[in-house]
Simulated scan of single mutants.
Amino acid sequence: MPISRAELPAEDAASLIDQLCERWADAEAVDRTSDPVRIDFANGSCYLQAQPDKLLVVVEAVDDETHDQLEGEVDAALEALKGVSLDIVWEA
Rank of each mutant, 00 (worst) to 15 (best):
V59K: 01
D12V: 13
D26V: 08
L70D: 06
R38W: 01
D35R: 12
E7M: 05
A27F: 07
V58W: 00
E7D: 11
V57C: 11
G44F: 01
L20A: 10
D68T: 04
V59F: 04
A27M: 05
L20F: 09
T66D: 14
W24I: 08
V58T: 15
P36C: 12
P2I: 11
K54S: 11
P52E: 12
S45A: 13
A6F: 06
L48Y: 02
R38G: 06
A6P: 09
V89W: 00
V57D: 10
A25R: 15
N43T: 07
A76N: 11
A27P: 00
F41Q: 10
L86M: 15
I39C: 10
Q49V: 02
L48K: 08
A29G: 01
A61S: 14
T66L: 07
I39K: 07
P52M: 05
A25V: 07
D26I: 05
G72R: 10
D26M: 07
D35H: 09
L86P: 04
Q51L: 15
P36W: 12
I39G: 12
L20C: 07
A61H: 01
A76R: 11
A76D: 13
D26H: 12
D75H: 09
V59C: 04
D26T: 06
L16K: 14
P9V: 10
S34E: 07
E60S: 13
A29T: 15
L8Q: 05
P2E: 07
E79M: 13
N43P: 00
E22A: 15
E79W: 00
V30R: 10
L48W: 09
S15C: 10
D26K: 08
D64W: 07
L8H: 02
N43Y: 01
D31N: 13
A76C: 01
V89E: 11
A27N: 05
D35T: 12
E71N: 01
E28D: 05
L55M: 07
S85Y: 00
V74Q: 02
S4Y: 02
E65C: 01
A29Q: 13
L56A: 14
E22V: 08
R38M: 04
E60M: 05
D35E: 14
A80Q: 02
G83P: 08
H67A: 08
P52A: 13
E65N: 12
L8V: 10
D12K: 11
E65S: 08
V62W: 01
E11Q: 14
L70I: 06
L8E: 06
P36H: 05
L81M: 06
S45Q: 13
L48C: 08
L70W: 03
Q19E: 14
I39E: 05
Q49I: 03
S85Q: 04
A76S: 06
L55K: 03
R5A: 08
T66C: 02
T33M: 11
F41W: 13
T66Y: 00
L20Q: 01
Q49N: 04
P2Y: 06
D87G: 02
E73V: 09
R23I: 04
E28K: 15
V57L: 07
L70N: 04
E28N: 13
Y47C: 01
A80E: 07
P2F: 06
N43I: 09
V84A: 14
S45L: 12
A13H: 01
Q19C: 05
I39H: 03
E22L: 12
G44A: 03
